[in-house]
């Protein structure tokens, strides 16, 4: 079976520097893959390569087995949605109008808005618990509410693959976990850049980046070892089993 998304030695060079180098990866259908790494390690760049928004300078990215470079933007957007790290607008639009943008790849002048699109938008608003805010002005939303609206927009796109760049930024702890549960519950194949290692523990696999390279890939509990964390983040970490049988937790200590 062809993987939904494949990277084959993909790399990106900017101004003579490899900001992503030689990343190979094969997504499994339905999995949630966490991208972990320090600031500037290349997570956003890797997501942009996966989304086809950047061409790899080396290697190849394939969507359902087809080279990304040969697909049209519209075809890509019908299968894959991206929530970028920061995207804002000064336009006076409502939350609903922002979410409606997600239907763009499914519409054209000859195939206008239909009840099916209404249903997709309503379902997306409901999924992020924002149906009651649909008529709110974008400018009146808090940072976390904007983030949820962005996720609703991506969901309305009905993608097979969801790429999320630090979606839990700005969210309170309740909504952080809510977003992770929501994303897990969608059953969509997901790649999610994260900074919180506890969140990474909820992923099926994690890919650890350092200086543009993939240094580890695998199930989080086995991959995020104290030695790796010390090397990547310069902190001492110890994984402590939860006495009540819930997820284990990290104890951190910064190394000077």
């Amino acid at each position: 079976m062809t993987p939904p998304l494949e990277l084959d030695g993909a790399g990106r060079r900017v101004q003579g520097r490899d900001i992503v180098a030689d990343v190979s990866l094969s997504l499994q259908p339905g999995e949630m893959l966490g991208l972990i790494g320090p600031n500037g390690s290349g997570k956003s760049t890797l997501l942009n390569l996966m989304a086809g928004l950047m061409r790899p300078c080396r290697g190849e990215v394939r969507l359902n087995g087809q080279p990304m470079a040969r697909l049209r933007r519209r075809q890509i957007a019908q299968r894959l949605a991206l929530v970028a790290q920061s995207a804002d607008t000064g336009d006076r639009i409502t939350v609903r109008e922002a979410v409606e943008l997600g239907r763009t790849p499914w519409l054209d002048p000859l195939r206008p808005w239909s009840p099916r699109d209404d249903a997709a938008v309503a379902a997306a608003l409901k999924a992020v618990d924002m149906a009651h805010m649909a008529a709110r002005d974008w400018s009146s939303l808090s940072g976390g509410e904007r983030q949820r609206a962005h996720i609703a927009r991506a969901h309305a796109q009905s993608p097979q693959i969801l790429l999320l760049d630090e979606p839990t930024n700005h969210l309170d702890i309740h909504h952080q976990l809510g977003i992770l549960d929501l994303v897990a519950g969608l059953g969509t194949t997901t790649v999610i850049a994260l900074h919180d290692l506890h969140h990474a523990l909820r992923c099926d696999r994690v890919l650890v980046m350092q200086a543009g390279r993939c240094v580890a890939l695998g199930p989080p509990a086995e991959t995020l070892t104290p030695a790796l964390i010390r090397e990547i983040f310069a902190i001492e970490a110890e994984l402590i089993l939860h006495p009540g049988g819930a997820r284990p937790v990290f104890a951190f200590q910064r190394l000077s």
Binding site: R73, I76, A98, P105
Partner: peptide, 25 residues
């Protein structure tokens, strides 16, 4: 311009977001 009305909407969150929505920039 009318033909591209939806494409113009897609630029609401910037050119990169428009590309992610399937617009051939």
């Amino acid at each position: 311009t009318l033909w591209h009305a939806r494409a113009l909407d897609a630029f609401t969150f910037g050119a990169e977001a428009a590309a992610a929505l399937g617009i051939d920039l």
